[in-house]
Amino acid sequence: MPTIVSVDDSTVPGEGSSRLLLLVSSDNKHIVVEEDIMSRSRFISKQVEGFEATSQRHAILLPFSSFVLNKVIEYCSHYRGYYLLEDDPDAAPPGRSPVREWDQEFLDVDRNMLLRIIKAAHYLEIKSLVGSCARAIADMIRGKTTEEMREILGVENDFTPEEEHSPSSKCTG
């Protein structure tokens, strides 16, 4: 029997006008979250449109763990009601998008976690979070040597010695 976890006790039904969604993570945790928090996700929005067309609501199964899902929900809750240019280019009012320093602190996690979050954000189609994660990963490798980059990215040097020393294997743009 899956356990039901509520993300935030204050978001009890009836308090806001927003309806509730049931998300199920890959480790079989059930998470109840308000619909408008998750409206930033194109994937969830499409699911909700489907519910409305068929007048049937059901749980949304997601292919990542509750640990990652909670992180994504935390992000979406923080920017609840904000217009972020990447997510809603048509609706965003002209002018500045809110300061994104918060993202930096929010994404101050280890590399593996960062990779899990960016994959989840990509699956859920949250462009702003994909962008912030990509920026954070890029920050990790910027200015590093090729060898340090291999370490951080976890890739193996698979060039032959000749290739490595030929100018064509170097990207000059």
Binding site: A134, K144, M149, L153, V155, S169, K170, G173
Partner: peptide, 17 residues
């Protein structure tokens, strides 16, 4: 991810694998 890199870092990254 690579789109956030500067040209120098991008060039080094292309040499990783």
């Amino acid at each position: 991810v690579l789109g956030f890199l500067d040209a120098k870092s991008l060039s080094r990254c292309a040499q990783t694998c």
